[in-house]
Amino acid sequence: MFEAKLTEGLILKKIVESIKDIVTDVNIDISPSGISLQAMDSSHVALVSLNLSMDGFEHYRADTNMVLGVSIANLAKVMKLADNNDQITLQADQEATHLKIIFENPKTERTTEFNLNLITIDSEHLAIPETEYSSVVTINSGEFSKICKELFSLSETVQITTNTDYVQFSVEGEVGSGQVRLGHNDSEKKEDQTILEVSESVQQQFAIRYLNMFNKASTLSSFTRLCLHQEQPLVVEFKIDNLGVLKYFLAPKISD
């Protein structure tokens, strides 16, 4: 038996919106301590990893580990039934064939229920090595979104360079070339802060198209954390207050 109730259901709605363009079918792992999922996009370039702790739920019960195979496209359609102020409850029996999703609005007394059919997914689970990232950049999520969006109109690829003084996003395309450079900024206004933690500088190139997809999660978190290592994929991380973390991994583009 699994049951989890989230008071701020909008968070779950936003999570589904933030992953539905990247992954199609996903195995959701239920454990007594929380909910997690890991899935790659069809081209194996990007990976979504979500971890939600039971502590963030108003009510959480999972007697055993369970795997719930879900079509994210269909889950997104069901989530559209939810009002932004709804509480969301997820329920599944042992050996479940469907996931029951309940939306409740205590103010308007409206309740919506949907039984989403589960599917069997043969997915490859990748073991992600523990990595000490040599550059970690914490940046306002709205600002990072905007930078990626605007640069994409100029080039398909961005080169991210880090050093102890700044992080630089540079592009080169038919239109010309240029860069946005952000220095370390720990100003009193928290939302303006850009925090650089660089032990070794990194220079890598990435497809901006994917970054734009990841940035749909910027409504979940005021800050985006970019974790870089010269020999490793980029991690774009969105912390979800009191609940968990949504991470995206992106393989770099490599020069011939």
Binding site: H44, A251, D256
Partner: peptide
């Protein structure tokens, strides 16, 4: 010219 790498090159199949 750049080529897009795949995650499989970095992560092991678990």
């Amino acid at each position: 010219k750049t080529n897009q790498a795949r995650l499989d090159c970095f992560f092991n199949q678990g």
